[in-house]
Amino acid sequence: MSAAGVRQLVSNLICLVALTVAGPVVHATIFPYHGLYRISLPDAGSVGALAVDGRDVCVGQGDTVSLYAPTSAERIDHQHLDGTVRALTTVDGTIVVAVSDPSRLEFLAARSLRVLRQRRLGAATPSELVYDSLARMLFIEYRTAHTVTRLDPQTGRALGSVRLVGALGQMAANGRGTLYVVNSTHDAIDVIGARRMNYEGAIPLQRCSTPRALAMDTVGRRLFAACSNGRALIVDADLGFTFDRFPIQYGRDLRAAFAFRPLGPHGWKGGIFFVGGGAVSAIQMQSFVRYQAAGRFPLTRRVTAFAIAPPVGVLWLAVAPSGGKPAALWRLGTPVSEVR
């Protein structure tokens, strides 16, 4: 890293740590992460999609997919696509990108971002991609069409589709052939049999208003839903039973992610992170049945995408341009994260 890069890194670190300390204390528990550094993005517009494959950070911004090295903060490569990047995910060494105008899938080589192949999609604009690596199933969601389609992860061929009723939010797959889609119209989680893409029913989210975000622990079989009324619910997916609730930030733009042992020691066996509403908050998983609120980190800029890198316990946030500043990637972690 250049001297200027180091200076920027130190500057950002001081800034974000100060922000952490000075920010309003909204929960007794201390949020375990601090700002490590941030990367200003050269392209215009907000980041629409973000993925971490364990080594590099893949960013979809406007019509460009870029690859960043997390340690040097340098852009390794980028690829312009004809259209707007709506979602992306990694599939066995390939980056699958959902692009609109026209709607299609682009399959890129993970390191070089070389376009391997394309697959035309329907007329609707894609909203989200989820790859279930255990079941080897790829799902694409079209929120404007209220539809979820299962795709062949290698070719992008549509294998089945289900139309749902209501406003759809984040998706999560259980690795065993079931897909969950949070439904903010019905305050519920729609359950889809992924093999046939049939609607199996809905899990109600009681006292949860307009849920938008959803994540899943496929081992513990827990669903984590974030509600716009400042509640996060932990649901036993086998029973559809909400057994715990935690206060989180209010917000209609929440997104959720779960990771096993993002920090490991000190009682952490996993973490659930909710981003949006001007903050990122955490719930610590102490066991499959015991969870604890783990604080909140206020954010000064709107987050447009986020991802978690479980092996190193790092959160990546993509923040929107603001006050003349371009979009940026913020990296949150602990000193331990850096060592590892």
Binding site: A188, I189, V191, E200, G201, A202, I203, P204, D238, L239, G240, F241, F243, D244, R245
Partner: peptide, 17 residues
Amino acid sequence: FHLLTAVYGPPAADPNL
């Protein structure tokens, strides 16, 4: 009270549950 068991959604289709 909040831990009193119940089953909702598709799992409720299973009579054993």
